[in-house]
Amino acid sequence: MTDAPILLTTTVGSFGKPEYLQKARNQFAKGKISASELHELERKATTEWIRIQEEIGLDILVDGEMYRGDMVAYFADLLDGYKEGGLVRSYGNRYYHKPIIAGKISRPNPMTVDWFRYAQSLTDRPVKGMLTGPYTMLDWSFNEAYPTRRDAALALAEVIRQEAEDLEAAGAKYIQIDEPAIHARPEEIDIAIEAMGIVTQNLKAKTVSHICYGDFAAIYPRVLALPVDQLDLAMANYEYRWLDLFDKDPFTRELAIGIVDVHKHELESVDEAAEGIRKGLRYVSAERLYPHPDCGLKTRTVEETVAKCRVVVEAAKKVRAELRAKVPA
C-alpha cells in the first residue's frame, strides 16, 4: 500500500507552440507551405514536448496540442454538420472563428487518435487522450441547426463518445473531456451531465474533466454528478477559494488541482505551490490528488511553460517527501 503512487503530476493539455511552428502555421494559412510540411513540423514539436515533459519529470503526459488552433474549432473543422464562422472577439485584441452548427453532426473520421498514437509511441509514460466536452462544444458554437441546446449537446456527445472509445481502443489509459464552459449557464448543468454520461458510459479508461473560469460555486455540489473519475480545477488563480466549498459538501472525485496560475508571467515559488498541494490534501488523499498548472499553457512561451511545470514537479516532490517522512517505518 505504501508503494501506491501519490501526487502524480500532469498538465491540462495545451503547450505553447515553438516559434518555427507558429511561423509555419502562418505560412500554411497563406498557402506558402504544404499540409505535409506543416504536419512534419507539428510532429517535431510534439516530439520535443514529450522529451521536455519527461525531462521535467511529469508523470502523466499530454501531446501538447501542436496541431490545434483552439479547442472547439479543431473538432468543428473535422466534424460534418459544422461550418466555419466569422471572427468574434474573445477579449482584448484576441479573436477566434466561432464555429456554426449548421446541420446534423457526425464524425466522418477519428480526429485525435493518430496524434495520440504518435505521442504515446514516443514515451513509456501514459499520455492522456484530450477531447473537448459536448456542452462546451455547444456553448462555444453558434447553434443554427438543433431546436434546443440539449438536442445539440446530445448530438455532440454521440460523436465525442465515438472518439473517446477509439482513443481507448488505441491504448489511452486516461481520457480527458474538458468542460470549461460547464458553468456558463448553471441551470443547464443537467444537460452537461447527461451529455457527459453518453461520452463516458462504455469507457474503462480513467476519465477526467477540466473546468476553469466562471463561478464554480454556482454548480457545486451538483457537478459531482458529472460522470468522470477526476475533476480538474483551476485553484491558484482563485486563491484556492473553491476548496472552502468542500467543507460543506465533501468532494467525492479525484482532484487534479491547479497550483500555478497560467495567466500571469510571474513564476510561483516551489514553496507557494507546495502550500497549494497541502491545502488540497485537507480534502483529497494523496493517491487521489494530481498537482498541475491551473489551465492549458498555450498562451505562455515555451520557457514560461517549462518553468511553471518544473515548479509543479518540484512542489509535488517536496510534499511527497513530507508525507513519506510521516509514515512510520
Binding site: Y91, W140, A181, A184
Partner: peptide, 10 residues
Amino acid sequence: LERFYDNNTY
C-alpha cells in the same frame, strides 16, 4: 480576466 456571463467573451 473572467468570463462575462454565459459568453465565451472575457
